Computed example of a mutant assay.
Amino acid sequence: MAPSLEESDRIEDVLAVPLKNAPTLVAPEPEHCPGPETETAGKADSCAGCPNQEICASAPKGPDPDIPLITARLSGIKHKVLILSGKGGVGKSTFTSLLAHAFASNPEKTVGIMDTDICGPSIPKMMGVENETIHTYAGGWSPVWVLDNLGVMSIQFMLPNKDDAIIWRGPKKNGLIKQFLKDVEWGEMDFLLVDTPPGTSDEHLSVNSFLKESGVDGAVMLTTPQEVALLDVRKEIDFCRKAGIKILGIVENMSGFVCPKCTHESQIFEATTGGARALAKEINIPFLGAVPLDPRIGMASDYGESFFDSWPDSPACKALKGVVNRVGEELGLESDGIVPED
């Protein structure tokens, strides 16, 4: 029987233990709270007069005891890659699904996608497994397999109804992300791609802290050409540098529009400051490539199909293959065989 968020007894098992055993507070955290699980909790000057002071001061401190379990669980995964942006709507989930299909096109490689967009999971729809459920066994949970060498884990598989809203605060999100890492039997894999929501908040902090010991190979930044998207990407880059996450490079998505019939390219989102290429040069990170806007990518995602299989000769597909090869090179892989030639 697959786990479901309707089953209250399972909810406690899955989500009640987030980043350690978080103390139960009697009042909301004040504005300058150092955090109820930090070493200074209950002892900082800002804690004076807080109703939670005694609770926080007596809460257990120290490293998360689940980190070694997560590290052991992920020991069979060769490369772990985060897909980040900071900005919503630039195509992170779409790019993650395309990257996964590209890597999985090599039958000798095994790929996994971990969907950490808890409130807006879209990976199952894009991969064509929206109606599947998680399978449990004695060793934990099994990913939902799209192909023999491509597996997915998402909260979507746990929802009683696919339209149900996830209205959760940080601790529950953290708890589920930990569950995806600690109890999912990922097995031997070449790539684990972590699709993230916009921003630099709970999910990003959790993934970074949980994966720190097992190692993250790096992050791929995604943006669209206009400056309003690049503003948030700059913040995400700053987050990676502060968190010690290597930046594999930046991709400019929706870089022009390619007509499916005549293949003529038009600029839809003007790059007022030079786009991702100029940003990459400015802050000295690799520019991985530009992918044009092709409506057939959206169509393939809606139907849960592989864009690479459906339109292999399209300009967007050729551009994507170039980007995927660059990602592979940044991971230290041999360029031959990253994406098999037709």
Rank of each mutant, 00 (worst) to 15 (best):
P225K: 11
P260H: 09
T223S: 15
D238S: 14
L222V: 15
V258K: 02
G275Y: 06
M254K: 00
D232R: 07
E265M: 12
D238I: 13
L248W: 04
E270L: 13
I237F: 09
D232H: 14
I250R: 00
R234L: 10
R241Y: 11
A243T: 07
L230R: 02
C259W: 03
K242W: 03
G275C: 05
K246G: 01
F239R: 07
C240I: 12
E236Q: 14
C259G: 10
T272M: 09
F269Y: 10
P225D: 07
T223Y: 04
T272F: 06
G256K: 01
T273K: 11
L248C: 05
M254D: 02
G249A: 06
Q267N: 14
V228N: 00
D232C: 13
V228E: 13
C240G: 03
S255V: 01
L231Q: 14
C240T: 05
M221R: 14
T223D: 04
L248T: 04
E265Q: 12
C262I: 09
L248I: 12
C262T: 11
V258P: 00
K242I: 05
V258F: 08
G274V: 04
T223R: 06
K261C: 04
F257D: 03
H264T: 13
E252N: 02
D238T: 15
V233Q: 04
P260V: 10
E236V: 14
C259L: 11
A229K: 13
S255C: 13
R241F: 06
T273N: 14
V228P: 00
E236W: 10
K246N: 04
I237G: 08
N253A: 02
A243P: 02
Q267E: 13
N253Q: 08
K235T: 06
V251R: 10
F257W: 03
L230T: 03
V258L: 06
F269D: 08
R234H: 07
C262D: 14
R241T: 04
H264M: 13
H264L: 12
T223H: 03
D232M: 15
I268F: 08
K235W: 09
T263C: 05
I245A: 01
L222A: 02
F257T: 07
T272Q: 13
A229L: 07
P225V: 07
F239S: 07
M221E: 10
V233K: 09
P260Y: 14
I237P: 03
C262R: 11
F269N: 08
I245S: 05
D238C: 05
M254N: 05
P225C: 09
F257K: 06
S255G: 00
K246Y: 11
I268E: 08
F257G: 00
R234T: 07
T273L: 12
R234Q: 09
I237Y: 01
L230I: 08
L222W: 02
S255K: 01
E252S: 01
E252H: 02
I247C: 01
F257M: 01
M254I: 00
M221Q: 12
I268V: 06
T263E: 15
T263N: 12
G244L: 03
V228Y: 04
R241S: 02
G244K: 10
R241W: 11
E227G: 00
A229G: 01
I237Q: 07
T273W: 02
F239L: 12
K235L: 14
S266R: 12
V251Q: 01
C259K: 11
D238W: 09
F239A: 10
L231F: 07
